[in-house]
Nucleic acid binder design. Structure first.
Length: 486
RNA sequence: GGCGGCAUAGCCAAGUGGUAAGGCAGCGGUCUGCAAAACCGUUAUCUCCGGUUCAAAUCCGGAUGCCGCCUCCA
């Protein structure tokens, strides 16, 4: 099955063909490390992590590069405000980034370069652009001459004349054209700076990504991703820089994820309407956040709310309950199902398996893929709910193999189900101010009362437990309990 | 103003030509001492108006509403 990817450049789905055989080069613009990450960063990270995982699952040899922008005005401002160096600020928020992202189960990219460690490459690239007539120096600053690059605006669909009309020039800038953007900035006193042919200074925002992507992936590579807001000017400028310098096609496929919104408004630092990943993970499972992201198509905007996250969390628990059932089936024993039912089940599982991969192949349609997985969960419940002996058959193994593969790609449902559910129970139990012992003691009393058929008193205990936030289920194997959903 | 995107059930959300996945919630049922969980059943003239087509949520034109980019932003 061919993988089809929506490419921002052509604004259409294209069949994916890597430049170098089985190898895939993938670059994603990471964060500027000056503050904690919010849900929007989480979504982007989860989306590209899943794409990375899927490409690996399709047996591509993927080199995944995700950078840190660790030199920038915002970092410098924060450093000044807090009496720290820019390096210290960057270092701190890189650590915070990992603290959040590790919890979201992000697979480590192949390389996570920092701009400040690639100054040499950046300077080389700027020099090359000057040599080619795409850039010019004005007293220590170097600017990219946008009009020197044929096709500027081709990614974002912008017309250069219209951009010109709205372009602004900051005071003190000596651009020849308002559209031109800085490749190298002369440092002001007290700012971090590096030696360069144009005096001490630091790189502009866009040049680092051109330098680092080329360093790790070559002059042309397969996939380049980031948030929608990076299309212009960031990615437009990257194209101008890289193609201006090499004369070669920079990137084959441009991928952009949609925003997280709250109340239909973009979640962003400047609007102040954001939740940090950290505060959300205090109250919800990391995998619930992941599932929430993957239940929407990555290009669509997503309205974030407590309710939608809670719904995702419920779906997560329900799925894990099915998996606990599946993994708890004895490996040997009398087959449960009649042969013809088994065969029908087996066919249905193949269908779902194919559906999962067809959805993923269609521009990483994780929502469609998840629907197959949820269907599978229901099949597990239907067929194995009351199993007391397991069929030693390929069907259970087949289901399990499918689940493991899907979980490996999506990064949800990849924990041990029993451990996952019981740790959730412990956590929430503590939140209710209860202990396991106390709950179980009440259940024992109730069991005795039920034996004596004193249902009224038994039900009173059940009601009391529910009042305290515990729901119980009487099963053939005994009474089990869990934290009630609020 | 320029460019782009979105509008699918109570809510969330897949689906780009052949009469609508999935999640959450609701209702009816099975099971249960009663519940719960699980399962089964049930819940959509796909924003509106035109057009193309044997056939449209899906393509084209228009309207309305919402959002994004054009300035730092995932």
């Amino acid at each position: 099955m061919p993988l089809r990817i929506y490419d921002t450049f052509t604004r259409s789905k294209q069949e994916f063909r890597p430049i170098r055989g089985n190898h895939v080069g993938m670059y994603v613009c990471g964060i500027t490390v000056y503050d904690l990450c919010h849900i929007g960063h989480a979504r982007s990270a989860i989306v590209f992590d899943t794409i990375y995982r899927y490409l690996q699952a399709k047996s591509y040899d993927v080199t995944f590069v995700k950078n840190f922008t660790d030199i920038d005005d915002k970092i410098i401002n924060r450093a000044n405000r807090e009496g720290l160096t820019a390096g210290q600020v960057a270092e701190r928020y890189i650590e915070e980034y990992y603290r959040d992202m590790d919890r979201l189960g992000l697979r480590k990219p192949t390389h996570e370069p920092r701009a400040t460690l690639h100054i040499g490459g950046i300077i080389d690239l700027v020099q090359e652009l000057i040599r080619k007539g795409h850039a010019y120096e004005v007293s220590g600053d170097v600017y990219y001459a946008v009009r020197s690059f044929q096709g500027y605006g081709k990614l974002s669909g912008k017309d250069i004349e219209e951009l010109e009309a709205g372009a602004r020039v900051e005071p003190g800038e000596a651009k020849r054209d308002p559209l031109d953007f800085a490749l190298w900035k002369k440092s002001k006193p007290g700012e971090p700076s590096w030696e360069s042919p144009w005096g001490r200074g630091r790189p502009g925002w866009h040049i680092e990504c051109s330098a680092m992507s080329t360093h790790f992936l070559g002059e042309s590579f397969d996939l380049h991703g980031g948030g929608m807001d990076l299309i212009f000017p960031h990615h437009e400028n990257e194209i101008a820089q890289s193609e201006g310098a090499t004369g070669k096609r920079f990137v084959s496929y441009w991928l952009h994820n949609g925003f997280v919104q709250t109340n239909k408004e973009k979640m962003s630092k400047s609007l102040g309407n954001f939740f940090t990943i950290r505060e959300i993970l205090e109250r919800f499972e990391p995998q619930a956040l992941r599932l929430f992201a993957l239940m929407h198509h990555y290009r669509n905007p997503v309205d974030f709310s407590e309710q939608s996250l809670r719904e995702a969390e419920k779906a997560l628990y329900r799925g894990y309950a099915s998996l606990r059932l599946l993994r708890g089936l004895p490996a040997t024993g009398k087959p449960l199902l009649l042969p013809e039912r088994l065969e029908a089940l087996s066919d249905r599982i193949d269908e779902l398996n194919n559906g999962f991969f067809e959805a993923m192949d269609d521009d990483f349609n994780t929502a469609g893929a998840l629907s197959c997985l949820f269907d599978l969960m229901r099949l597990i419940n239907t067929h194995f709910k009351d199993a007391t002996a397991g069929p030693e058959t390929g069907v259970v193994k087949g289901i399990d193999a499918f689940v493991r593969k899907a979980a490996d790609i999506l990064g949800v449902f990849d924990s041990d189900p029993s451990a996952f559910l019981s740790s959730r129970r412990e956590k929430r139990l503590a939140g209710l101010g209860l202990t396991k012992g106390a709950v179980e003691e009440m259940l024992e009393r109730r069991a005795l009362l039920r034996k004596e058929r004193a249902f009224k008193d038994a039900d009173a205990i059940r009601a009391e437990l529910l009042r305290q936030g515990i729901s119980i289920m009487d099963t053939p194997g005994g009474t089990v309990w869990d934290i009630a959903d609020e």
